[in-house]
């Protein structure tokens, strides 16, 4: 199915283009807009963004796949991203992941069958003084304990 920006996002994209002397520099902002609209970056999205920037889909593909935050397939409505890097590991990050695996019924790296949860581990999120921590969709949750995790899960719609 072909993808295109909504009228509002097209307006936003046109404004973004004016910020850079080189069109290709609008690549990451355009991909962010597309992911917000579509939830993930499909091949159709890449073709569309390429057409807007005058680039082949392959140029968009090589950029998309370089970065960890663009999703190449649909992800769960609630995306748990547990920081796994050293400062968090020192403070018990592994326990956070295993607790979530149990409570969410999802294995690390997987999405639940109903599309509700995705569980990932990610590298340093720059929140080392409040470890262990995770990012749930856009938001940081810090100084985690099993109790805090349970309350967080219970609060989700």
């Amino acid at each position: 199915m072909a993808f295109e920006f909504t009228a509002e996002n097209k307006r936003k994209f046109d404004e973004i283009l004016t910020r850079y002397p080189v069109q290709r520099a609008a690549m990451l902002p355009a991909l962010w807009l597309a992911q917000q609209q579509h939830g993930w970056i499909s091949h159709e999205v890449m073709e569309y963004v390429g057409s807007l920037l005058g680039l082949s889909p392959a140029k968009v593909y090589e950029t998309v796949t370089f970065y960890t935050m663009f999703h190449l397939k649909p992800i769960g409505r609630h995306h748990f991203q547990v920081c796994r890097t050293l400062p968090c590991q020192l403070m018990g990050a592994e326990g956070i992941t295993s607790h979530l695996e149990k409570k969410l019924g999802v294995k690390l790296g997987e999405t639940s069958g109903d599309g509700r949860y995705t569980l990932s581990e990610v590298e340093c999120l720059g929140s080392c003084g409040t470890a262990p921590m995770l990012q749930l969709n856009d938001d940081y949750h810090e100084n985690l304990t099993p109790e805090k995790l349970d309350a967080l899960i219970a609060s989700l719609k």
Binding site: L28, W32, F66, Y67, F70
Partner: peptide, 12 residues
């Protein structure tokens, strides 16, 4: 002076 905030997308 123009200032633009540009978001990365996950890459150390």
């Amino acid at each position: 002076l123009e200032v633009v905030v540009h978001r990365g997308a996950g890459a150390y």
